[in-house]
Amino acid sequence: MTSVLDRSAPSAASPTPPKRRRRVAVVAGPWTYAALIAVLAGSAFPVYWSLVVSSQTPAAVDRVPPVLVPGGHLFANIARVFDTTDFALALMNSLVVAGTITVSVVFFSTLAGFAFAKLRFRGRSALMLLVVATQAVPTELGVIPLYMMMSDFGWAGEIHAVIVPGLVTAFGVFFMRQYFERAVPDELLEAGRMDGCSSLRLYWHVVLPAARPAAAVLGLFTFMQAWNDFFWPLVVLVPENPTVQTALSTLASGYTTDYTLVLTAATIGTVPVLLVFLLFGRQIVGGIMQGALKG
């Protein structure tokens, strides 16, 4: 980046300064659109297929040639899912788990992100580096002792065992710190300090309101991740007290798999995240792309 600026320096001194242009992207031709539509179709197809299967009778799914459009048995299949398993409990558990984790991650991440971005304290940069480093630690591989701990606490099979390890994430702290560095001017905080605000009041009245856009993106990410989490809930929960994902695994594990039933459950379980995605997809895409610029 700097070398580009250096190169443009002499021309800036010339009598006619070059016009500052936004980068001119190549205009997409029909082939680009064709390729993009193919990519889009590929991305959406499995989700569509899940809907197709979940609206058929079991006999229709085992037909050759296969039926490629949705049928009329979606509601009958949904009823069967709720009859076969306690899917209402699974949905409730997933909602409680993902909701609690989301609130907690956003709270602790904004708090720590504020401290790292805007407060001065000894060891700040070293500790921040430590946070970034912990992101790379494959904590999943500690699953055996974690399970032993949860058994000792008497939490095995309970949803707190899923919630508690998810209450903080390194990514959240890092993400919020990056945002505060850019978005909250020091002068604003100085002014608050002059008025005698403690750091906690600054956090509550200045920082948190300013954090809203980034906190929303972090919240959406966290919710979807917690909702979709599979391995740890599978290990620590029991089939009688499942999340949506572990209920799917149990349903799929029957002696013969009834795909209309399993994929109906998968479809129901996907609807909440799909809804979040359709409503806030633009912000989520923006969040990934902004994060990438600093990566």
Partner: peptide, 30 residues
């Protein structure tokens, strides 16, 4: 492809991210 100047670019960007928001359990079963 996405770096060209395209219409409905939000649609395409969201479209490529769609697989990432579906759960690994659902994806595998499908």
């Amino acid at each position: 492809l996405l770096n060209r100047r395209i219409r409905t670019r939000t649609l395409f960007r969201m479209g490529v991210l769609l697989p990432n928001i579906t759960s690994v359990a659902a994806v595998t079963i499908i």
